[in-house]
Design a binder for these strands. Structure first.
Lengths: 200, 200
DNA sequence: AAAATAAATTAACAGCGTTAAGTTATTTTG
DNA sequence: CAAAATAACTTAACGCTGTTAATTTATTTT
């Protein structure tokens, strides 16, 4: 079965090569502007080869998103571990969420903003985006246990915070032309407003 | 000049006819899935006729968005006039914004959520989007003048509040399957959290 | 070495946004 | 009232797009 392993690893290599090329192009030019032919050109294969590894264009993007969001969940966890203070953990997690979205706008767009084609109803509840959300909920629980927040409704607070950070992330991505105040100042203010409004 | 006026009003009628057909299709099937040919079919003209009234497909969408923005701005203004208390005006305005989005999810989606082509650069200073945002900023200014808020940076506060209400509106529209807590409770909590976090 | 299988390609389809040229209908002018 | 001018609209076409089916090339198994 050695030969079979070699074969499969070769397949996996090309699969990852396609994903890397596609991610670069999606980020640089936007999902809609990148054609399958462009991706194929970049890696020196014919366009139809991509269909041996991905069902269609949106599946390709979906797989890229899942990979990146697994990284996000890990990022948030790592950052939170740097502090012992539950409230500081919460703050750094929220900040990392927004930061991630702005660093990967195309991928954030597809997972949290644009609905995927109805062929596969792979929605938020099955994505790694939810894993990232769960890490935030865990920290909210810590805060509640320490009596740091105004209510003990962990779910209500978590969803409120998520709404807030999703809001700032998505409008910064979508409304590029809007005359925003200085970006980091706005992000800070959103996060501090959310935390202040949630505190005991 | 009577004949010329008749001619122009005919042109305006077809222009509005195109916009109505396009909005319906965009709402039902999404911007990307609707072709110029589909729109033309719906109104019984050839596809190229649309180009006599709109520069291109994104210009057509842009004009539709302007109409929706105007509608939203008027709604918020009307609701705010019902109260004298600045903080209550602010609260009712925020609530109306979310309410408008949930009552017109497809239109909200097109204007505020759906990712637009990169070339879609509009002059915000002359758009109705600015008009809608200004109605909220004016009430924030009232609150600041009454020393009700923690800072006097009207722009920063307004943009923070917009991020928050856009966040809850868009996730309620986009992630209908998500196990949210009771909807009105969540909306209330987001708005109260935002206001509490912004108050003096 | 032959057969089987996997991997990648070529050719093609139907549809897209958009432009240029041509046609029909309306209005203006002499 | 007819001719010229203009406005309104259509036809034909270009170069793209995502995707499928058939086919060729390369590798592995027998």
């Amino acid at each position: 079965m050695v030969s079979r392993n070699r074969q499969e690893s070769g397949k996996e290599n090309l699969r990852q090569e396609i994903m890397d090329a596609a991610r670069e192009l999606f980020v640089a030019e936007g999902y809609a502007s990148v054609s399958m032919r462009k991706i194929a050109d970049k890696i020196g294969y014919s366009p139809t080869t991509i269909y041996l590894y991905f069902r269609d264009k949106s599946d390709l993007l979906h797989q890229i998103c899942e990979q990146t969001f697994a990284h996000l969940a890990q990022n948030i966890k790592s950052i939170q571990q740097l502090s012992d203070n539950p409230l500081e953990k919460l703050r750094s997690g929220l900040r990392e969420y927004v930061h991630f979205g702005l660093k990967n706008p195309s991928q954030y767009e597809i997972v949290f903003i644009t609905p995927l084609p109805h062929q596969f109803e792979s929605d938020f509840s099955e994505s790694n985006g939810k894993v990232a959300f769960d890490t935030m909920r865990d920290v909210v629980t810590e805060c509640v246990l320490d009596n740091l927040l105004k209510t003990k409704d962990v779910e209500l607070i978590s969803q409120t915070l998520w709404a807030g950070i999703h809001g700032i992330t998505s409008i910064l991505i979508k409304h590029e032309h809007f005359p925003f105040v200085e970006r980091d100042k706005l992000i800070d203010n959103v996060i501090e407003t959310l935390i202040a409004g949630t505190r005991a």
